[in-house]
Design a protein around this nucleic acid. Sequence first.
DNA 1: GCTACCCATGTCACCGGTGACATGGGTGCC
DNA 2: GGCACCCATGTCACCGGTGACATGGGTAGC
Lengths: 355, 355
Amino acid sequence: MTTMRDVAARARVSAKTVSRVFNDDPHVLPETRARVTEALRELGYLPNSLARTFRTGRPPVLGVAVPDLADPFFAVLATAVEQVAARADMAVVVSSLGYDPAREAVALESLLRRSLSGLVVAPTSQDQGHLGTWAARLPVVFVDRPPRGLTADAFTGDDHEGGRLATAHLIAHGHRDIAFVGDSPAMTTTGERLAGHRSALADAGLRPRDELVAFGAGDRGSAERVVGRLRSAVPPPTALVSGDARTTMTLVPALAGSSWAVVGFGDFPMAHMLSPAVTVVDQDPAALGRLAAERVVERLGAPERRFRRHTVLPVRLVERRSCWSPADASALFPSSCPRAVVAASPPPLAEEPPP
Amino acid sequence: MTTMRDVAARARVSAKTVSRVFNDDPHVLPETRARVTEALRELGYLPNSLARTFRTGRPPVLGVAVPDLADPFFAVLATAVEQVAARADMAVVVSSLGYDPAREAVALESLLRRSLSGLVVAPTSQDQGHLGTWAARLPVVFVDRPPRGLTADAFTGDDHEGGRLATAHLIAHGHRDIAFVGDSPAMTTTGERLAGHRSALADAGLRPRDELVAFGAGDRGSAERVVGRLRSAVPPPTALVSGDARTTMTLVPALAGSSWAVVGFGDFPMAHMLSPAVTVVDQDPAALGRLAAERVVERLGAPERRFRRHTVLPVRLVERRSCWSPADASALFPSSCPRAVVAASPPPLAEEPPP
DNA sequence: GCTACCCATGTCACCGGTGACATGGGTGCC
DNA sequence: GGCACCCATGTCACCGGTGACATGGGTAGC
């Protein structure tokens, strides 16, 4: 590895002068500069960014921690962060935390230990108090779920409104018996969405029925059990709100053969191509990622500036014919290419499906 | 930031002894060790990994560069790399390169500049000769596509066999007029798959028809144009092989209403839920990522050991009823939950769909 | 009792770039 | 002409952990 001192020797100047040339310091004579530039070129000098960072102390690296990169929601979010980082000339370190709270803490610590200058994190654990030490040192911005156990910036979707919207939409289409299925009531997002669901029922004068609320349908087996249990309710539901994309993706296969209307949370690739196409409440992961990353950059640039702590982004209903009332269900046909009906613009994932 | 010297002062030992305690060097008296451990705890010491890395010269960071993280194929691949890296106690820097060759080179250089100890890259450009300098310094392993313009390790799917398999499968189901649509003939993967497709036609004694080969159906508009053109061929195709997942995802919507059988390349979430469910040649991105990352780790451990340069992974046909002959097409019905018919095991993406 | 060696610990330099400050020649201005 | 100041360049230390080697007390073996 060629170092600055090698270049310096060759150009018969000091290492410092090489440093100046390399960093476009104006206080170098054109002639000297030319000689150094020549030497740089000849030796194929590449700066050791480690040494630079080490000396100056602030690595141009932005961390992103999400539960699962293979989840399209988080993949899009991470990509948005990457784009912002690239604009600010920073690298991005991405880490998948998984859904186990214990592993989350460990993975986050190990990510933070590698001198980042900022972090965007989508947590799933119940408490992030242990990040307090770190949050004091560098900008930590939460996405998708607000922090618990510490104060920090957060950008989330409007979960309550999303739950309300989904359920109100089903009610408007004639449904009266509407189930809600989510991952776990302990997830703040799911809790909020359920609350929104209930408030829509109340607004319509419908009685909430606890037997139509279920959790934990994360794999095919449990999804089928949940569907079975819901089916046996009296009267059985004619529609279902799924509290998260993970649940939607296991639930829809389990629902095959039944004519329930479905509104899911979180768009995913090809959602519009399913039969029936799943109507979704879209949370715009790209916007979440972009805003969070921009906040990190802003905080780095102005450490003592004050920002709104929690920003709630509006959600949007993307209707796709999965929510028609039972009377309309016969109109469904596979090859009729169900496209967005209500929404002004299809969501990013549907419009530009990843290859 | 507490440093080792701070801890040393407090424990009344030298910084070196603190270093020894911290790194579990056995040559420290239990009593000294206890004192140092106590001081470490009291001051909440955290190692500055930058300094360590800087000194030892080998940063525990593995780079992953893929065209697009939001593509489930690459997301799964990146996740697999992450897991291997975690096992080797390394961090992962992920970078999305995009599909523009010029930007690819720039993004790669900037990724490499940040002292990585190894790189896993899935290129799309026509030539990676410019990576030669880097490949000499650190293990660079190609995935999905082999390198061009330099010699390096590569793990790819068996594209030729995949193309043959897809087409042979359609032929076995009674199809005679089979179209091939891909992103671009310049992509090595697509070229190989097309060659495989042609060899299957030849094996069956079918005449290859150039008018049934099309490229560039990457967005909805061009997909519809391509489908229109294929439809007007005489005789029109009854089946179609899609050369990549990107194309599949735009093509399937454009095919709605027609009864063409489809075999795609690369599985994606919910593929089995489409109507008709798309039969795919699955490339197992997780295996590609895992093997590539393991190779990087192996090369780091044994710099002069020799490895097979190019490993071709077998591909697997996952049949899902999208390839029946025209006579059978009437059997398709949306809610019949099309599942894998032939494949022994459903692909990872279908079995554990991201939330 | 002396050599040889081990062990716990310390000292020092070094990785490579850069910030703080020094140096010394040149220029301008009263 | 002398003082002030600027400019190009150099010198040196430093960031923080660690490898190479030194030190000095203890112990075993002949």
